[in-house]
Design a protein around this nucleic acid. Sequence first.
DNA 1: AGAATAACAGGAACCGGTTCTAATTGCAAG
DNA 2: CTTGCAATTAGAACCGGTTCCTGTTATTCT
Lengths: 327, 327
Amino acid sequence: MVNINDIAKQAGVAKSTVSRYLNNGSVSEDTRRKIEKIIKETGYKPNAFARSLKAQKTNMLGVIIPRLNSASTNEVLQGIDETARKLGYQLIITNSDQNNEREFENLQTLAKQKVEGIIMFAREMTEDHINTVKSVETPVLFIGQKAEGIHSMVHQDYEAGTKIGKYALELGHRHFLYVGVPETDQAVGVERRQGFIDRVTAVTGTTIERVETDFSRTAAYTKGLTFLKETEATYIVCATDNIAVAVLKAANELNYSIPGDFSLSGFGGYEATAYVSPTITTVSYPYRQMGIEAVNKLRQLIEKEEVPLITDLQNNLVVNESTAPFK
Amino acid sequence: MVNINDIAKQAGVAKSTVSRYLNNGSVSEDTRRKIEKIIKETGYKPNAFARSLKAQKTNMLGVIIPRLNSASTNEVLQGIDETARKLGYQLIITNSDQNNEREFENLQTLAKQKVEGIIMFAREMTEDHINTVKSVETPVLFIGQKAEGIHSMVHQDYEAGTKIGKYALELGHRHFLYVGVPETDQAVGVERRQGFIDRVTAVTGTTIERVETDFSRTAAYTKGLTFLKETEATYIVCATDNIAVAVLKAANELNYSIPGDFSLSGFGGYEATAYVSPTITTVSYPYRQMGIEAVNKLRQLIEKEEVPLITDLQNNLVVNESTAPFK
DNA sequence: AGAATAACAGGAACCGGTTCTAATTGCAAG
DNA sequence: CTTGCAATTAGAACCGGTTCCTGTTATTCT
């Protein structure tokens, strides 16, 4: 591998001159040409490590995602990728497999590699998370959850819950089944649900049954085969679109009609909700936008600009075919 | 940030001793303890760049993916991630946005960052691709397409096509519509289709109509709304599961019954085929396995072991509800 | 023409590690 | 009490760049 010394020697100049050529400039037309020629001939590429070592800058951003097959994560990633590219950052994406230990580990590894900032898709927020983040000196931005003293981007989950609640009530439904996820996920497991519950219980005579599942389709499908037969509800609220798709599948299996027998809705606005029949009513989250804004915010953090601790993004109700008035 | 000199000074030893402590060993029990203590106190982490600079090793693998929202890519990525982790590699994932220029660019960038090997999800195989790969001295492994003199992992696409052909013929179908993708993608656009065509045309009295679309669901859906009304076929073969899902959607929209009016199948084996109604018959590809084997093969390439140029993986037919005997 | 100034180039130091070489020390054997 | 050898350590060189400082040369101004 050819290095800067080889170039300097061949061009008959000092390596500092080559370096100047590569960076700011201030090189005479004459030497510029000589160096240019040699570089072209040899296909020389400066070693990124040597560069970073001195410059103390890597132009890399770290991203920690909980899993590789999440539709919402991928949409946010698209926004991140696009924006990072625009700002000249290279991304290192690491997967934590929904495992706290690996989240800490990735955080440490990325910091050690001297990425300039880290975006972490948060699931849980434990003491350990907060401590680890505070122990690395790299700026960290959380996506999806908020915590004391940590910068984060969040969705208006509570409001999303109330939107579905309000809409379902307007359709005339009074008996609900809420298919939720564990409370360890504060945003999705607690706030989204609470927004819904608060809105619905503001009306007298309403009932809410509750079932808990996880983020996988299989679990929701299996549980759906049971709870659909037992519920008194006329409207089923699923905590994510994935769950809704799985419940729809279970309903089809059992020959229930959606929205004839049950109205059904999700949260997220994934593409999948538009490619099942009936299409599923949902609350659409601005995932891509979140990625874009996350990188911009992280850049500000890196440059030590003043930024609000929490940024939240609005979402909006998308009515599809899976919901109908109660009759 | 504390560095190795600080540690050495505080521990009262030479920095080479600290380095030895960090790496192989050969340090007396006494100094070992001293150094250990200081490192713990200061929270010292060796600078990865300085390390790589000297060691000429980064323990990083580069992965170039065409887009972030592909189900198949994500499954392969899971296999890659898992295996890379096991072998102690860190992943740098870059997105090329289905754009040749960005593929070259990412290839260069990764090489410059001195990743030890690169896995590239291939779409097209142009002269430029082959030249770029040969111009970097980093080992590169292609996934999904093969090319002269380049190591690659591929699916048995031709065989997958024949499997669908054989199965559809056995069901008694004779008139087919093949919904394909452009031929720039050799594996999916040409081989998969050719396997099907060869198998079907081996039987006399068969007809195959052809429609071309791209990899997106929207395009397939839109075209589906048209060609479903015009086709003479009783069996529709879609080049990917995504296309099949979109065509199913269009069929539902037009009130066609699947498999009553048309049998329908895809390729891939994505989760989505199992969460629509009817579930879609497909050929299941071992995506995760491909990721696992890719990393293992790349490791061998990095260590300059002898490996076959091309590795291909088998797939298998998965019969679901969207296909039925011709009557 | 001589002095001041600007433009450019070379050399050395530095970034933070690893590794090679040579020196020191401790201990067993002669 | 030497000698020989192994274990351990210090010091220097090196990886491949960037940047500061200084010196040389060319250019402009008086």
